[in-house]
């Protein structure tokens, strides 16, 4: 039996992208369910932010065993930034962490993000997509901050609602 590398890789790639898309869409399907159960008076944005918070908290717990302080504050911040970018990449984005100019400052930049596209299918406002991304990362940092006894924050500086340009989030040590 001969091995056809192109065929195997294309099958793997196709299935990976399908899985990423299904996961993204399923997130918004569940949002629909939550809105229907919550009723007409519920604020969709509030529900989205709550979901982002819950997801972020759980993801943050998973990060704790993988982070460490052995390389000091600068190394730790880059490790954390890379972890956040890596989480985004697993969801189908193209993100990276870059050292900022100030001590301990790291920028997470994302050149391509499929989530606004999924959101559009479900009539979710782009502002909510951006706010939820920020909220999710912020809630990831909650436990990390307490665990390492270092106040961390992340803020969205620039969003790309339709996938043009670059998302930019600033990760830094809060005063």
């Amino acid at each position: 039996m001969s091995f056809d590398a192109e065929k195997e890789i294309s099958k793997l790639w196709r299935n990976l992208h399908s899985a990423q898309a299904e996961i993204g869409k399923t997130y918004y399907r569940w949002r629909q369910v939550a809105l229907e159960i919550a009723g007409p008076d519920a604020d969709p944005r509030e529900i989205g932010l709550k979901a982002a918070y819950v997801i972020g908290k759980d993801v943050g717990k998973g990060l704790l065993p993988r982070l460490n302080w052995l390389k000091g504050e600068e190394g730790f911040m880059m490790m954390l930034g890379r972890s956040l970018a890596g989480l985004w990449n697993v969801e189908g984005a193209q993100a990276m962490a870059e050292k900022g100019e100030k001590p301990g400052e790291v920028f997470i930049k994302c050149a391509r993000d499929p989530w606004p596209t999924y959101a559009k299918e479900f009539d979710v406002p782009m502002e909510e997509v951006a706010a939820c991304r920020e909220k999710m990362f912020q809630s990831i940092l909650e436990d990390v901050s307490v665990f390492f006894n270092i106040p961390l924050n992340i803020e969205l500086e620039k969003a790309i609602p339709r996938g043009e340009g670059m998302w930019v989030l600033r990760l830094y040590k809060a005063e």
Binding site: K61, L64, P65, D143, V146, F147
Partner: peptide
């Protein structure tokens, strides 16, 4: 103190 658990 309420330090989160590293191991779930």
């Amino acid at each position: 103190s309420t330090v989160p658990q590293r191991l779930r």
